[in-house]
Design a protein around this nucleic acid. Structure first.
Length: 191
DNA sequence: GAGACCAGCAGGG
DNA sequence: CCCTGCTGGTCTC
């Protein structure tokens, strides 16, 4: 079982970078994943939201280094217990109708791009140009690509569904993994 | 506010 | 294949 299509992803905009990120690891179908959490204001009280998901390509410490490079001002705290809760939603059996909060820093335009990706159907592939049209900014292709590249939350913001017009398929964590994700989605209608 | 930077794209050679 | 012009949002002074 992997991420269900029924899983609702609620994307909220962080006004500034968080000062603390709690993190932990998940063993997923597609390898080890580093998951980072931050607190956001929910309907009634503070709740946890996913703010980063990186695939572990080499080892844990090199992945943590990558996080530190990208978020230099952030204090990282290991918190396996909090991450375990999200692990159950992501990789567990309770995907149906669950809501997962994702909080990301970014501009309005970037949030538009990321939301458009989230709303794509599982397994659906789209080019940068098509995505720009979807956003009613047909000439802002490069700007869309910039926003896609800034995505810090792999899988939940499914930037693996973007391909370039000539069929080339780059991916931050490797074209191979991207292809695996797409093949899996196409065959199962899950993720 | 200017100028550089890009996981794009189309066109030409 | 490589080069060029065009593009628009963001980042850095």
């Amino acid at each position: 079982m992997w991420i269900s299509d029924d899983l609702q992803i609620s994307l909220t905009k962080m006004k500034k970078l968080p000062s603390i990120i709690r993190y932990g690891y998940i063993e997923s179908k597609f390898g080890r994943i580093l998951l980072g959490l931050t607190s956001i204001k929910g309907a009634n009280d503070e709740c946890d939201a996913v703010c980063l998901i990186y695939f572990v390509v080499n080892n844990d410490s090199s992945t943590l280094d990558e996080v530190r490079r990208r978020w230099p001002s952030v204090e990282l705290q290991a918190d396996a217990v909090a991450v375990e809760k999200f692990s159950k939603i992501l990789c567990g059996d309770q995907g149906n109708n669950a809501v997962i909060n994702v909080a990301v820093p970014g501009t309005d335009f970037q949030l538009d791009v990321w939301n458009a990706l989230i709303n794509l159907k599982s397994g659906r592939k789209i080019t940068y140009a098509e995505l720009a049209e979807l956003l009613e900014r047909p000439t802002a292709v490069r700007a869309v690509a910039n926003a896609v590249a800034k995505n810090e939350v792999a899988i939940l913001i499914p930037c693996h569904r973007i391909i370039s017009k000539n069929g080339q398929s780059k991916y931050h964590w490797g074209a191979e993994l991207k292809q695996e994700l797409l093949t899996y989605e196409a065959n199962t209608n899950l993720i």
